[in-house]
Design a protein around this nucleic acid. Structure first.
Lengths: 137, 137
DNA sequence: TTAAATTACCTTGCATACAAGATAATTTAA
DNA sequence: TTAAATTATCTTGTATGCAAGGTAATTTAA
């Protein structure tokens, strides 16, 4: 008989819950949620991505993306632009507000990671991250 | 500059997403969601728990619990009972339908854990679980 | 070339999550 | 003892997450 305390699905859910909570708390000053921040982080790598490409990079379906995008546009973090060559494609660009927030947000992300992994020596951090990547298959 | 691919919050979110997806797929036959199943698992340990105690055990707030409980009652998995000694307390009891589903659900949970951790040797599984517990603080 | 298939995105519906506020029952204190 | 504080639960509002279906633009094929 397996208890949920031994269930990897439960353990992942609760570790995720904890991590989200810490990041969410730090992001309050910016008025951003963890998902909204992640959405923009994908654009730090490459600005002007299409909605679909953002979804592939952060592994999120377009139904959820649509809502996140809409709130980011309303709050002035990003702009939508229809692709010139393909009328189906919506591209997303960071605003000046978003670009100037990058250093502050980066600091929050680093701080969050430090807090969550403060008890983990360097090699354990690497091991844990490898485990999590391996689980995605 | 930290990429979200190195961010522990992102890695946990996506490992969690994967795990939920696998369990969700296996639970379709029972018409249960992972959270509904987890809710009942807490009652396998001790039937007749109060709503608040269930929330403490599976680390979920009462706002979310209320909805999960309502759907379980509607589908005939559990019954609500007001505590005789304290009118504020709602206790939850498994129905016969729920008790007879325990073996099948246990099998699904075991299978899900095997699938997710198939590439992990025994000692790595233990290590990963310890990591995840440690992160909750 | 144009009808069919594909693609990109959006919308709807349902189920978590959680903050914040409301309510009823119980306990504590003055 | 009874007003105040506490507790257990519920409700509301916002934000994911995902399945399923819809629409417009593009590409493929007959």
């Amino acid at each position: 008989m397996i208890s949920f305390h031994e269930n990897i699905v439960f353990l992942l859910a609760k570790a995720h819950q904890k991590a989200q909570g810490v990041l969410k708390g730090h992001l309050l000053d910016f008025g951003l949620t963890p998902m909204q921040c992640l959405f923009m982080e994908s654009l730090w790598e490459e600005d002007g991505l299409s909605v679909g490409e953002i979804g592939r990079r952060i592994a999120l379906d377009t139904a959820t993306l649509a809502g996140v995008l809409e709130r980011l546009v309303t709050a002035g973090w990003v702009m939508r632009e229809t692709d010139r060559d393909d009328g189906r494609v919506t591209r997303v660009a960071l605003t000046e507000k978003a670009r100037s927030a990058i250093p502050g947000l980066t600091e929050i992300i680093v701080k969050t990671n430090s807090e969550l992994l403060s008890n983990f020596p360097r090699e354990k951090k690497i091991l844990l991250k490898r485990f999590l990547r391996d689980m995605r298959g």
